[in-house]
Design a protein around this nucleic acid. Structure first.
Lengths: 343, 343
DNA sequence: CACGTCAATGACACCGCTGTCACTCGCCAT
DNA sequence: ATGGCGAGTGACAGCGGTGTCATTGACGTG
């Protein structure tokens, strides 16, 4: 009697469970989704049958029938960058018990790969997006707009948000740290950048504005689009020192570069901060354990993830969202690597 | 005429495209999946219509109808751990052009969360799994077995592989690095471990075996299940030195701890390796840029990811797999942090 | 006692796509 | 002229669930 049609996949289905229990399949479906609508004894029998048969619901079929995927997409530029793994943790925490599945993708800092991912996730029927702020392709924008789905851009604060946004003002942060260095007495301040995405560029703009406001020179700037590594931090340091020997301090666009530069200084016997002051960006763990401890801009990575997830969740539940754009700010951590004890 | 039934989601469907072009929907489907079966002029018209209408295929429907999801699941313990982000890169690279979608999940080192993820991905109808080796729940094993899907365990070499496996022998690696330290002349060698998962435990076992083989003391061992951090590396160093003052060298179960210990030494003015030798595990970038450079065991993380993906892909394509278990080995990097220049 | 109400369950169509098989038509070999 | 063949296209029935509405029977109420 349990003969299967030719096309049947062989998996245990709702029908199999229903037949085993002797009820209709819709009752099984209800027992799983609206347990209070099914009588207790029947529910118990159904649970046993499910366990016995090893039934696993088919989400594809469920989503198709209900036009609900209960999934959202989170697209980050990189998964090897510690910055995003903390954001991810924040997002995960919020969505953990929400009943939504988080589909995670990484674009490798490519807006075309991002576009591909958006397309893929749309074809999966996700109900919302968390993407990182910055540039998107025209097509990405069109896809998101046409989908009508809620979108949260995170990390930066876009000038023209697609929908919602959570992050911080990277230009202001770059300006703040540079101003602090100036206040400490540094005059020849360089900039070292790698993986110059939109936000790194903004930090650079802040650095430049601060210097110009004080009538200081803003030529000691070296950047590359290569991925950021410790090694590259050391290389940038050497390049900057080589080309701009007067440099007293360098603001690196992230902590990896700053730490790499610090290590290079140690290797060369350059004293930090006496011979060279170094500042980073993000406030990663490493800045707090090296000697001297690294000055940096602490960014609220995990809160950004949490807040982005909360915003999206509210919109998914059709709850009102107080503010569509949330600036979570930043904190300056002025530490030993830029101390004032100079000659 | 384009009136929609009440249940229609409002999205553009294959039918909409078909009506627009004036052919049947199966032809549109074919134009997308088997382009050579559709005449050239028609194909062009179809492409235009798809572009114009903004049609995005519904993967749920497609998977349901074809009983193929073209997706595989990759479950790693952690996404903040740099080790796995490299594995991930290897996997991604192989699957990039394969037509398979990689669904990525992280278990947070919890076998119960892993079980939940396996269940979730099965309900998505994935066609294969890459999971990390080590302990699994009974239920996880049952689910995987019952599914009949190909499974690759990666990182370690399980004694009883579920199906396929790619990795290295962590016990042998722990033994090798400890033996190397002994050969260098160290006699009081400690072990510091955090996030003591299955593989870290194996490294510890290797450390112990090496010491015993040489009649050396194996009590200077401190471990914790807490997540591994730089800070914790420093704390473990202090604890070990405090409780086992004779310790001359410490093998840490990963590079984060080793680097943290090195930084703590620097802070305290302890000379490395003269006062204390330090070794790590994995060969992360940082080991190569700090001063002194850290001795470590270099593990083939990216190749593990690539190989795991290749194995899975072969099985998905029903190609023969030469070896179900692949040991990719490891390399000792004996560097300055364990140099022989002792007093 | 008739009636409305509510809890519990079922029947049926449909979500959007693909497997399968059938059909049409032009062309070439016989 | 006839038949066979392959390229190009279509009809139909699912895939495994869920939305919607109907049905049944027990119970409380005036």
């Amino acid at each position: 009697m349990s003969r299967r049609s030719r096309r049947n996949s062989g998996r245990v289905t709702l029908d199999d469970v229903a037949r085993h229990v002797g009820v209709s399949k819709i009752t099984i479906s209800r027992a799983l989704r609206q347990p209070d609508k099914v009588s207790a004894p029947l529910k118990t029998k159904i649970e046993h049958a499910i366990e016995l048969l090893g039934y696993i619901p088919n989400r594809q079929a469920g989503s198709l029938a209900s036009a609900r995927s209960h999934a959202i997409a989170l697209i980050v530029p990189s998964l090897s960058n510690g910055v995003f793994s903390e954001v991810l943790r924040g997002v995960d925490e919020v969505f953990q018990q929400s009943g939504y599945q988080v589909l995670l993708g990484h674009s490798g800092y490519s807006i075309h790969e991002e576009e591909r991912l958006v397309n893929t996730y749309l074809s999966y029927g996700v109900e919302g997006f968390i993407v990182s702020s910055g540039q998107h392709t025209e097509r990405t924008l069109a896809l998101l707009k046409r989908s009508g789905l809620p979108v949260v851009e995170m990390m930066g604060i876009p000038k023209a948000p697609l929908d919602m946004a959570v992050g911080l003002d990277h230009e202001a942060a770059g300006h703040a740290i540079t101003s602090a260095l100036i206040e400490l007495g540094y005059r020849n301040i360089g900039f070292g950048g790698a993986r110059m995405d939109f936000r790194a560029q903004e930090r650079l703009n802040g650095w430049r504005r601060a210097l110009r406001e004080h009538g200081l020179d803003d030529t000691a700037c070296l950047t590359t689009f290569s991925p950021s590594t410790y090694h590259l931090g050391g290389a940038l340091l050497n390049d900057i020192v080589g080309r701009f020997p007067a440099t007293e301090a360098i603001f690196f666009c992230n902590d990896d570069l700053a730490a790499g530069a610090l290590f290079e200084c140690q290797r060369q016997g350059l004293r930090v901060p006496t011979d060279m002051a170094v500042a980073g960006f993000n406030g990663m763990d490493i800045t707090d354990v090296v000697s001297p401890r690294l000055t940096t801009v602490v960014t609220p990575r995990r809160p950004i993830g949490e807040r982005a997830a909360q915003l999206l969740l509210k919109r998914l539940n059709a709850e009102p969202v107080e503010a569509r754009v949330v600036d979570l700010g930043f904190t300056l951590a002025l530490r030993d690597s830029t101390s004032i004890e100079r000659a």
